[in-house]
Design a protein around this nucleic acid. Structure first.
Lengths: 210, 210
DNA sequence: TGTTGTTTGTTAAAATCTTGACATAGTTTT
DNA sequence: AAAACTATGTCAAGATTTTAACAAACAACA
């Protein structure tokens, strides 16, 4: 048992979660895979298949209860629990991420913001002071830090990641333009904005030549 | 002919491009799919298969010339040409994106930054003044704008996207937390940071239960 | 309460993607 | 110049993912 769920499925879950959240806001009580498929431009079969990886959330002849399904997907994704996040690198992107997460998501809580630049020391970003990297070990020891967002130059990313893991932070949200594989015992999620922009660029070229 | 290349392949191209760029910086002249596969932690077969979608860039018994292959992938991705980019939404994220792109990539040039908030009018971000959205139509008319990055609240994303397309901007790099499908004749690349964070959250849970 | 209609969960087929295998072509060495 | 070696391009097998199909379960309505 305990079949491994493919990352392809996992990548789709947040999107389901988002659409269900919107339906919830709109006061929609129930939805069929067919209706949802039309809104989301995917096949109904895929929706049912995806959801059934985790159990039967629907009911024949009725469909899915929006509130219930939303909550269940939230549980699967782990966003109904609180996760403490620190941001390493208090540049533009770091500040933006700190603000963005704060606005967008309950469930994720930014509790610390770090940088190496002494000029930034103590600067307030929202309600958080920028701390120096030297303060990181103590901070991690005294706070339950689950996720570290790395928004720093690629030169420092690997060593910082290694340090974080040694301090006990086992999840990294990596915005640095470098791969952080071959670090054992840590979960990495990469956001390579350059890669995304290049994909866009490719698709522009394709689009033109049609 | 003119076989459609799958997005799975396209998603990998920027990564090849990055690794080849690093090899280039390190003064490495040639590389075999086998050596590259070890560095990148993918199969050599996949590398050869991916590249052969676009033609034979290597030579039997020799491997691939790093500079040549780097350049060719650059051509495929369209990053050897210049693309003018405007950013709509001059909040933290918009400013970060403007700076990030500028630093990371030649090939993409930020030429304008727009917002609706009158308080931001004229504020300099790097070397660009924040302009009001009313100025957008004239700006697009007078400048060759290829890509618009949307870093604004989801409520305004769709209408702004529609306006951009009507003005002749046919590529959107979307950071708003909403899907912009069903807009015809436009290439969309989504960066859903929340989705990414949720994936991380899921994988943390999985990691723990092992 | 029975009949009709709806929609799931699941199975199987189809399509796509990844990996392994190897003949061929070119390189390197002697 | 020949022999030994290397590594691509490509074909085919294997694995995974997606889609279609439908029986079983429940809802809605008469």
């Amino acid at each position: 048992m305990d079949k491994q769920i493919s990352q392809a499925v996992i990548r789709r879950l947040p999107r389901y979660y988002r659409y269900l959240g919107e339906l919830l806001d709109d006061g929609v009580e129930r939805i069929s895979s067919n209706d949802l498929s039309k809104r989301m431009h995917v096949t109904a079969s895929q929706i049912r298949q995806d959801l059934n990886n985790f159990g039967g959330f629907g009911q024949q002849g009725y469909g899915y209860n929006v509130a219930y399904l939303h909550d269940e997907i939230g549980n699967i994704l782990g966003v109904n629990d609180t996760h403490n996040v620190i941001v390493i690198g208090a540049g533009n992107l770091g500040q933006a991420i700190a603000g963005y997460v704060k606005f967008e998501r309950v469930g994720f809580k930014i509790i610390g913001l770090f940088d190496v630049n002494p000029e930034l020391k103590g600067k307030m970003v929202r309600d958080l002071p920028v701390q120096m990297l030297e303060e990181l070990p103590d901070f991690v020891k005294n706070n339950n830090v689950e996720i570290a967002a790395l928004t720093l130059p690629k030169q420092n990313a690997k060593s910082t990641a290694l340090k974080l893991v040694s301090l006990g932070v086992h999840a990294i949200w990596n915005f640095a333009h470098v791969d952080l594989d071959d670090i054992p015992d840590v979960v990495i999620e990469n956001v390579h904005l350059s890669d995304s922009l290049m994909q866009l660029s490719y698709n522009i070229t394709q689009h033109k030549n049609k």
